[in-house]
């Protein structure tokens, strides 16, 4: 079965998805992920998750899901003009 592999690069960082691995059980998935994804000291920690456990959004829905955030520039600090002479804002 297929497993998704997540690597924490350094202590304190979040785990990030790096790819998938084939293995018959969780223990082997962990060993294989270690051999395949962390040969150059890339990891402080590893997660493996059965691929079937991932719930993914449909790429066809991307507009519906994410487009409404695009016209709301006021959510960004750069939208606001800071008057000359004002600091630490």
């Amino acid at each position: 079965m297929l497993w998704e592999v997540f690597v924490r690069a350094r202590g304190g960082l979040h785990h990030a998805h790096v790819g998938s691995i084939h293995a018959s059980d969780a223990e082997l998935a962990m060993e294989n992920a270690r051999d395949v994804f962390t040969r150059r000291g890339e990891a402080a920690s590893l997660w493996v998750v059965p691929s079937t456990a991932i719930v993914a959004s449909d790429p066809a829905d991307a507009d519906v899901l994410f487009e409404p955030a695009m016209d709301k520039e006021f959510r960004h600090p750069t939208y606001y003009e800071v008057p000359d002479g004002v600091t630490n804002l």
């Binding site: 304190g12 960082l13 979040h14 959510r75 600090p77 939208y79 606001y80 800071v82 008057p83 804002l89």
Partner: peptide, 27 residues
């Protein structure tokens, strides 16, 4: 504590507009 620190990074990033919009109202 990693999970708290990571949550706070997101919070601080998003919050950066909050103070400015308040100051903008007062200006």
């Amino acid at each position: 504590y990693g999970p708290y620190a990571r949550a706070m990074k997101r919070v601080c990033k998003e919050e950066s507009f909050h103070q400015r919009q308040g100051f903008d109202i007062l200006v």
